[in-house]
């Protein structure tokens, strides 16, 4: 097995051993899904049609914004970076392996919600499963790219948790997954469009994967990719 593939597998194992990461990738999203799914479908039966999407948005946002930056920050904000550097491991590799591992975890979590929701809460499923998962994949990549920037920029765990909440909470409140975005004041609805969760939720609801819907996500990915490249370059130059 090549070094890169071994690195992905290793990162996957490290994520499983990291309780903080495991909580945000699986435990909290799935417990929240079970708890809120029961409440939503009991008091607002119409949410059965969007429960898979809203819970996927919640879980992915939590994993990518609150969870994924932790191992990235632990690597790049500490002496681990130096160990990798002297060990001949290119500086961008830990970031890529972290993101691929996180992507797989979040896809698994999304799949669990996809299959469990109809069984447990009798929800409807997306018209086209392949399109749904293509949208989920795009949304995960976008959210992880934002999480990557957070993890690279912020070294302190407490500051990271605080900064992540500034993205996570508005994503929940303004994207329409907790209550319809149409009910929000215009200014807040407009602010909601700054967060990938809003666009991801819209695309999942329509079950249409088109360029117009993808554009905000692609722009976010591109901007974050540029930011990550510059940050890693600057971190390499310190030494």
């Amino acid at each position: 097995m090549g070094a890169f593939l071994y690195g992905i597998l290793l990162q996957w194992k490290l994520d499983i051993r990291n309780k903080g990461v495991l909580l945000t990738y699986y435990v909290v999203p799935l417990v929240f899904f079970g708890f809120m799914g029961k409440i939503f479908t009991s008091i607002m039966p119409e949410t059965k049609s969007t429960l898979i999407y809203s819970m996927t948005i919640f879980g992915v946002t939590m994993g990518a914004i609150l969870g994924a930056p932790i191992p990235i920050s632990e690597t790049y904000g500490s002496k681990v970076k130096k160990a990798y550097q002297i060990g001949g491991i290119p500086m961008h590799i830990p970031l890529i392996t972290n993101l691929i591992s996180a992507f797989v975890h979040l896809i698994i979590m999304s799949t669990i919600i996809y299959f469990a929701a109809p069984l447990v809460f009798n929800t409807s499923q997306p018209i086209n499963t392949a399109v749904h998962f293509a949208i989920v994949a795009n949304f995960i990549i976008t959210s992880l790219s934002v999480g990557a920037v957070l993890g690279l920029v912020i070294k302190s765990a407490s500051k990271l948790a605080m900064a992540a909440q500034f993205i996570f909470l508005p994503s929940l409140m303004l994207s329409g997954i907790m209550f319809p975005a149409e009910m929000l004041p215009k200014s807040l609805a407009a602010a909601g469009k700054l967060f990938p969760a809003t666009w991801g939720f819209e695309m999942m609801k329509t079950n249409i994967l088109d360029f117009k819907g993808l554009l905000p996500l692609l722009i976010t990915i591109a901007l974050c990719a540029i930011a990550c490249t510059l940050i890693i370059k600057s971190k390499r130059q310190i030494y």
Partner: peptide, 26 residues
């Protein structure tokens, strides 16, 4: 080869995993 004072590894990595990973990259 370099062994520096101010270096660390991920908290949850096992000794054999770190060794294998570094061997593969080199």
């Amino acid at each position: 080869g370099v062994q520096i004072q101010s270096s660390s590894l991920p908290e949850n990595i096992k000794a054999i995993e770190a060794f294998t990973y570094f061997c593969k990259w080199n």
